[in-house]
């Protein structure tokens, strides 16, 4: 029933899950058999049936109060132990800052590099995520690691895990956050220790020498621009990129603007300064996420979408 367990803490959560499920099924089976058996065995034979007067039975009642009490106390203690593990990160955990915005995840690494909707972590090493939101409440959820924590706008929250397998896992937003809530997905990439170090060193620089248009296209995907802006004319939460460049745009306040380089730059860094008529002011700012060269590349890419 559960997804593959890919973190050090998952096994204990799973054990408790299976314990509760098994005990519940046994009890449910017992109750169901009793219902069906009684309904058949004591079915009404005639209108004059006389039934015994049994008002209560203290021994029986104490038994069926105490046994469930013992069972739930076991579950309580077990759940608490597991929870304490989940909330106490080891001191040597590698720390990643997570910023949630409607509707994308940013992962800020210790060397200043930022990845959007991709989380890169080393295997067999505790990782601690320190999280905050730029707008509404989100919740970071990685089913494979059995971890989840709400991400709040006015304080930091954190969670930790230690991945045990190289590979990929899905990251969800679990707290409803509006239109594209169900598109606010990210991927956890687990590397070996060496590969992770290499990725950290090269990730920021790897695309510097690419062709600007191809780089722009890559950035649009990587930074989740395409969650809300299509490249084929489809209307999503934001205006499509197709035919955007050089066109005349009507703003919410009636102003007509030509979509030139400066307009696009402003829309990326201060998205709510001017809103296209018919759309909502919901885009997060990319100031601090994208540098000037990257913005240039995105503009070059948009120019090609006619």
């Amino acid at each position: 029933m559960l997804p593959p367990a890919k973190s050090t803490t998952a096994a204990e959560t799973d054990a408790l899950f299976h314990f509760i499920t098994s005990v519940s099924l046994i009890l449910l089976l017992g109750i169901t058999i009793a219902i069906v058996y009684f309904a058949w065995k004591y079915r009404r034979r005639s209108e004059d049936d006389v039934t015994p007067v049994i008002t209560h039975n203290s021994t029986l009642e104490i038994t069926w109060s105490v046994i469930p009490l013992i069972l739930v106390m076991i579950v309580f203690g077990w759940g608490l132990t597991g929870y304490m593990n989940l909330t106490t990160p080891p001191d040597d955990a590698y720390e990643i800052r997570v910023v949630a915005k409607s509707w994308l995840w940013e992962f800020h690494y210790q060397n200043g590099h930022v990845s959007v909707n991709e989380m890169h972590v080393p295997v067999d090493r505790p990782v601690k995520l320190v999280m905050s939101s730029d707008d509404v409440i989100h919740s970071l959820y990685i089913p494979d690691y059995r971890v989840k924590m709400d991400v709040l706008p006015n304080r930091y929250t954190s969670l930790w895990f230690e991945a045990t397998e190289i590979g990929e896992s899905v990251i969800y937003c679990a707290e409803y956050c509006g239109t594209a809530h169900s598109n606010m997905l990210a991927t956890a990439h687990v590397h070996s220790q060496e590969d992770f170090e290499i990725w950290l060193e090269t990730a920021g620089a790897e695309d510097d020498d690419m062709d600007p248009v191809a780089r722009g296209e890559q950035l649009v995907t990587r930074n989740a621009c395409d969650t809300c802006h299509s490249s084929d004319g489809t209307r999503l939460q934001g205006p499509t990129f197709q035919g955007l460049f050089g066109s005349e745009r009507e703003m919410e306040d009636g102003e007509i603007v030509v979509a030139d380089e400066n307009y696009i730059r402003e829309s990326i860094l201060e998205p709510n300064a001017r809103i296209t008529a018919g759309y909502q002011p919901v885009m997060p700012s990319y100031a601090g996420t994208l540098d000037d060269r990257q913005i240039d590349a995105i503009i070059e890419y948009i120019k090609t979408l006619e």
């Binding site: 204990e12 509760i20 499920t21 759940g79 597991g82 089913p143 059995r146 971890v147 989840k148 679990a174």
Partner: peptide, 14 residues
């Protein structure tokens, strides 16, 4: 009961 158990609820919540 399952959802009341802290560790499991972390996984199952929402």
């Amino acid at each position: 009961i399952m959802l009341g158990a802290l560790a499991v609820d972390i996984h199952l919540h929402d």
